[in-house]
Every structure is written in C-alpha cells, then in structure tokens.
Lab assay of single mutants.
Amino acid sequence: MEVRTIKVFTTVDNINLHTQVVDMSMTYGQQFGPTYLDGADVTKIKPHNSHEGKTFYVLPNDDTLRVEAFEYYHTTDPSFLGRYMSALNHTKKWKYPQVNGLTSIKWADNNCYLATALLTLQQIELKFNPPALQDAYYRARAGEAANFCALILAYCNKTVGELGDVRETMSYLFQHANLDSCKRVLNVVCKTCGQQQTTLKGVEAVMYMGTLSYEQFKKGVQIPCTCGKQATKYLVQQESPFVMMSAPPAQYELKHGTFTCASEYTGNYQCGHYKHITSKETLYCIDGALLTKSSEYKGPITDVFYKENSYTTTIK
C-alpha cells in the first residue's frame, strides 16, 4: 500500500517557510505537534488534498525554529505562539472599519479597549522592536488589523473576551517599542525636605499616572512627601515624541487643539466601556464603527496623549 502524501510549508514567522512532505494517514499533531492554519487549530486533523502548498504555523520545537521565533517575536515564552494563534482565530472574524481616516474595530468580545489602543497607536510616533509587531502594525494602518490585535493580546497575556485596560495595554506595548531616546527629568520640591531631581528613561519617561493635564504637570502637581507634608512635583525636561497622561476616570474637559487623542471610560472596574476622542479640525468621538463630532467635550476621561518633541522648564 502506497503512502499518500502532500507537500506543505511549516513556519513560526510566515517569513521562513520549511518544506514538509506530510503523510495523509496521520494527523498534523502526530507529525508536527500543535499546528495552526489561519489561526485555526488543526492539530487533530489529517492532511487533505486542499492543504497542498498551504502554510501551517507550528510551535518552535527545534533550534532553527526557536531562533526564527525569537528573532521575529522577541520572546522565548513557549506558550506565546499558541496564544497568538488562538487569538487570531477570533480577531480574523472582527470587522476593521476605516473611521475618520483611522483603522478602528467594530465592537465584539469586549474589544473596546483594543480599538482605543489601536486608534491611539496610529496617532503617536512609535516604532516597535519585534519585527512581528512592526509588520502587523503597518498592515493594521492599511486596514488589516487582525494579526496586530492578536499579537497585542498575546504580548499582554490576554484572551479574547476578557476586559482590558488601555493604560495597561499601552504599557505592555511600550515595553516592546523603541523608547531608548526618551528621557524625563522631574523635580520634587518640599518646604521641609528641599528639592530632589529624578531622571527617568524609556517607558517611565512617557507615562504618568495622577493627572490628565500635561500643562498642569509642567506647572506642578501636589504629591505627598515622605515627611508627610505636601510637596510639588513638576516637569523639568521632556525628550520624547509623545507623552501619555493618565488618571482614574473623572469628568474632564478636553479643549480642541490642546491634545492629540484621549480615552474615555464609562462604567466601573468590573464592567465598563471605552471610547476614543481625537482632536482634528474639530473633536471626534470614535466608538467602534461609530463616529460623532463636537466642538467641545466633557466626560469621564482616563488617558490623554500629547505630541511632544523637546521641553525644558522655565521655572527657576
């Protein structure tokens, strides 16, 4: 009895394709271990004539594949690729409408935090270190965002349907971005203890939790000093293409032309909904596939993004 075979390709990165001759009487799992086709788990399936010449994702289970996976995804987590594939199996079914010149995501599976993050990423200057993220990001900007969303979920250790947080998501993504040249110098002034300067680099240099107003941050924000008295913390120097200011959701007025974009969060910790506000020729609110415009805006804002380049204080 002759062994019926077909020729397929296996890959971990969709760049390096490895030619395989597979036995049609055995499952993919018996031949390769966990195997995925377009995100779908085909591990328990036997090869079919229609699979001839198709590319299958496999887990990096030998040295060659491990090197290829690390170079593309910059992670050695053995569960990463499987999590990416199972997320992709959902995100490829989502709709990605162009809204006001940006790629958004039609609401499904509690994905409003991903839509808000995706919209924000198209408006701030950011370059990702893992080629996987950078490639998928370019495709997302062009309207094909399924891979990018699935990668975000995998890097953030999230599953489809789980509630997510924009600030946490951005923080994970910033860790995989090139923020080497970003720098922030802060000064804390206390009447009792004097003053202390701190220099922050990388992710810490672009994120701040405690106030939404970048102007206020430049002037000074009140913080408790270690001595128990009130101290003032203010920005001395900022070198970065953008800054992200966050605070627990509270009524906040966004003035046209003073910011790049913002995240609105309605609801409580267990259950809520994100919308995205962007400042173009007027203010726009993007909620999944829905767009509304207004000249002014007041609502429960939790993150505001500002364009920056270089700032030095005039406070002496």
Rank of each mutant, 00 (worst) to 15 (best):
E2S: 11
E2T: 12
R4Y: 11
I6L: 12
K7R: 13
K7D: 10
K7V: 12
K7Y: 12
F9G: 07
F9T: 08
F9M: 14
T10R: 13
T10D: 11
T11E: 07
T11A: 09
V12D: 01
D13C: 06
N14W: 05
H18E: 02
H18G: 01
T19A: 13
T19D: 12
Q20F: 09
V21Q: 14
V22T: 08
M24S: 12
S25N: 13
S25M: 02
S25A: 12
Y28W: 03
G29R: 05
Q30S: 15
Q31C: 13
F32T: 12
G33H: 10
G33R: 10
T35R: 14
Y36W: 15
Y36L: 04
L37H: 14
G39S: 13
G39C: 14
G39K: 05
G39I: 07
A40P: 08
A40V: 13
A40Q: 14
A40C: 10
D41L: 09
V42T: 08
V42N: 07
T43Q: 08
T43P: 05
K44R: 14
K44G: 14
I45E: 14
K46T: 13
P47R: 06
P47C: 03
H48G: 13
H48C: 11
N49V: 13
N49Q: 13
S50T: 14
H51C: 04
H51P: 03
E52Y: 11
G53S: 11
T55I: 13
F56C: 14
F56G: 05
V58C: 10
P60N: 05
P60M: 09
D62N: 12
D63Y: 06
D63C: 10
L65Q: 14
L65S: 12
R66V: 12
V67N: 15
V67M: 14
V67T: 13
V67R: 15
A69T: 10
A69C: 15
Y72H: 13
Y72K: 11
Y73T: 02
H74D: 02
T75L: 09
P78Y: 07
S79Y: 06
F80N: 04
F80I: 06
L81H: 13
G82W: 07
R83N: 08
M85P: 14
M85I: 08
M85H: 15
A87C: 03
L88S: 05
L88T: 09
N89F: 12
H90Y: 11
H90G: 13
H90K: 12
T91R: 05
T91S: 08
K92A: 10
K93A: 10
K93C: 11
W94L: 04
K95C: 10
Y96S: 06
Y96D: 01
P97S: 07
P97D: 07
Q98Y: 12
V99T: 12
N100R: 13
N100I: 10
N100T: 12
G101C: 03
L102A: 00
L102T: 00
L102N: 11
T103Q: 01
T103S: 02
S104C: 10
S104F: 05
S104P: 06
I105N: 01
K106S: 15
K106R: 11
K106Q: 14
K106L: 11
K106E: 15
A108T: 09
A108V: 07
N110E: 02
N111K: 05
C112P: 11
C112F: 08
C112A: 04
Y113Q: 05
Y113G: 02
Y113I: 04
A115G: 05
T116S: 11
T116Q: 09
T116D: 02
A117D: 02
L118T: 05
L118G: 00
Q122K: 05
Q122C: 04
I124E: 00
E125R: 04
L126F: 03
L126N: 02
K127W: 06
P130S: 07
P131K: 02
A132H: 05
L133V: 05
Q134G: 04
Q134I: 01
Q134C: 10
Q134W: 02
A136I: 02
A136S: 10
Y138W: 13
R139T: 11
A140K: 09
A140V: 14
G143K: 05
E144Q: 07
E144Y: 12
A145M: 02
A145V: 03
A146N: 00
N147I: 08
N147P: 11
F148S: 05
F148V: 04
C149F: 05
C149A: 08
A150I: 04
L151M: 11
L151A: 02
L151N: 03
L151Y: 06
I152T: 08
I152S: 00
I152E: 02
A154T: 06
A154Y: 07
A154W: 05
C156P: 02
N157V: 05
K158T: 04
G161F: 05
G161A: 06
E162K: 02
E162P: 07
L163Y: 11
L163C: 11
V166G: 03
R167H: 02
R167M: 00
E168V: 11
T169M: 10
T169F: 02
S171P: 01
Y172R: 13
Y172N: 15
Y172V: 13
L173P: 06
L173T: 06
F174I: 02
Q175N: 08
Q175Y: 02
H176E: 09
H176W: 14
A177F: 00
N178P: 04
N178V: 01
S181K: 14
C182W: 02
K183A: 07
R184H: 00
R184L: 04
V185F: 05
V185I: 12
L186Y: 15
L186S: 07
N187T: 10
N187F: 07
V188R: 09
T192G: 09
C193S: 03
G194P: 05
Q195Y: 06
Q195I: 15
Q196K: 14
T198Q: 15
L200G: 08
L200F: 12
K201H: 15
K201W: 14
K201D: 04
K201F: 14
G202C: 01
V203A: 13
E204T: 07
E204A: 09
A205Q: 02
A205M: 01
V206R: 02
M207Q: 01
M209T: 14
G210N: 02
T211F: 15
T211K: 04
T211V: 10
T211M: 08
L212K: 01
Y214P: 06
Y214M: 07
Y214C: 01
E215C: 01
Q216D: 13
Q216T: 08
F217P: 01
K218S: 01
K219F: 03
G220R: 02
G220A: 03
V221R: 02
Q222M: 11
I223G: 14
P224F: 09
C225W: 05
C225T: 02
T226Q: 14
T226D: 13
C227I: 02
G228H: 02
G228P: 02
G228E: 04
K229W: 01
Q230I: 15
Q230W: 11
Q230Y: 13
A231E: 01
A231I: 02
T232W: 09
T232N: 02
Y234A: 03
Y234Q: 08
Y234N: 02
V236W: 11
Q237Y: 15
Q238T: 03
E239T: 10
E239V: 13
S240M: 00
P241G: 00
F242I: 01
F242Q: 00
M245H: 02
S246H: 03
S246G: 06
S246P: 07
A247R: 10
A247Q: 00
A247E: 04
P248C: 08
P249I: 00
A250M: 13
Q251I: 14
Y252G: 04
E253P: 03
E253K: 08
L254C: 02
L254N: 00
K255L: 08
H256A: 12
H256N: 07
G257I: 04
T258W: 00
F259R: 02
F259D: 02
T260L: 15
A262Y: 02
S263P: 05
S263A: 14
T266C: 05
G267T: 04
G267Q: 08
N268M: 02
Y269M: 08
Y269C: 02
Q270I: 10
Q270A: 12
Q270S: 07
G272Y: 10
G272L: 08
H273R: 07
Y274V: 01
K275A: 03
H276Q: 04
H276M: 07
H276N: 03
T278A: 05
T278G: 03
K280D: 07
K280A: 12
K280M: 14
E281H: 00
L283G: 02
Y284M: 11
Y284D: 07
Y284H: 05
C285R: 02
L291H: 13
S294A: 15
E296C: 13
E296R: 09
Y297P: 02
Y297V: 07
K298Y: 11
P300R: 14
D303K: 07
V304N: 00
F305A: 00
F305G: 04
F305W: 07
F305E: 00
F305R: 00
Y306T: 00
Y306G: 01
Y306N: 01
N309L: 09
S310R: 12
S310L: 15
S310H: 15
Y311R: 09
Y311L: 09
T312L: 12
T314M: 12
I315M: 15
K316T: 02
